[in-house]
Amino acid sequence: ELSWTAEAEKMLGKVPFFVRKKVRKNTDNYAREIGEPVVTADVFRKAKEHLG
């Protein structure tokens, strides 16, 4: 699991709890794919757009 900024964690907190774990995993995987060592708010937004 990658490191997350406080802002990205806050955004994740707005995701319904029953899918939060999956969203975190998918976002981590997306960040790795694009070469990001940390999940930022920008990476979170891009993952959301990319993953739907």
Rank of each mutant, 00 (worst) to 15 (best):
K10Q: 13
R24E: 03
E1V: 11
V43E: 02
A31E: 01
V23F: 09
R32V: 07
V15E: 12
G13F: 13
E33V: 09
G52L: 14
T5G: 02
A47R: 03
I34E: 06
V38P: 00
A6K: 12
R45A: 10
Y30P: 00
G52V: 12
A47P: 01
V23S: 03
V15W: 08
M11E: 09
L12Y: 03
V38S: 05
V19A: 15
T27F: 09
D28L: 05
K10W: 11
R32D: 03
K48P: 04
E49M: 12
V19L: 15
H50S: 09
E9I: 14
F17C: 10
S3A: 13
G13H: 12
K21R: 12
F18L: 10
R32L: 08
F44V: 05
K25V: 13
A47I: 05
T40V: 01
A6F: 09
K22H: 14
D42A: 08
E7V: 05
P16N: 06
H50T: 08
T40K: 02
N26A: 15
E7W: 04
T40C: 03
F18V: 10
K48S: 14
F17S: 12
A31V: 03
V19T: 09
S3R: 11
L2D: 03
K21D: 15
N29F: 08
F44L: 06
F44I: 04
V19W: 15
E9F: 08
L12T: 00
L12V: 03
H50Q: 09
H50Y: 12
A47N: 03
D28V: 07
K48G: 09
R32M: 08
K21V: 12
E36S: 11
E49G: 08
V43R: 01
V43G: 02
I34M: 13
R20F: 02
N29V: 08
N26W: 15
K48A: 15
A41D: 06
P16K: 05
A6H: 09
A47V: 05
G13E: 14
N26P: 01
K10H: 09
V15G: 03
N26K: 12
E36K: 05
V39R: 01
V15H: 07
V39W: 00
P37E: 11
A31L: 02
V19E: 15
Y30C: 03
R24F: 03
A6Q: 10
V15P: 02
E7S: 06
H50F: 11
E49W: 10
D42V: 06
W4F: 00
F17I: 13
H50A: 13
E36A: 15
Y30W: 07
L2N: 04
N29T: 10
E1F: 10
K14R: 08
A8C: 02
E1M: 09
D42Y: 06
A41N: 04
V19F: 14
G52D: 14
F44A: 03
G35F: 05
E9R: 10
V23M: 08
R45K: 11
Y30M: 03
R24W: 04
G52C: 15
K46R: 11
R20I: 04
P37V: 10
A31I: 01
E9N: 06
K25R: 13
F18N: 13
P37W: 11
K25E: 15
G35P: 02
A41F: 04
S3L: 14
R24Q: 07
R20V: 04
L12D: 00
K21W: 14
G13Y: 10
E33L: 12
D42H: 07
G35R: 06
A8S: 03
I34D: 03
S3P: 15
K46A: 12
P16V: 03
K46P: 02
R45D: 06
R45N: 10
V39F: 00
K22T: 12
F18Q: 11
A41V: 11
D28C: 05
K14F: 08
K22V: 14
E7C: 06
G35K: 06
E36N: 04
T5H: 04
V43C: 04
P37D: 12
G52K: 14
G52W: 10
A8Y: 01
V39A: 01
V19R: 11
T40G: 03
T5Y: 02
W4D: 00
E9S: 07
R45W: 09
K22F: 13
V19D: 14
P16E: 04
G52F: 10
R20L: 04
R20K: 05
R20M: 05
V19M: 15
K25S: 10
R24N: 02
A31T: 03
A6S: 09
V15Q: 05
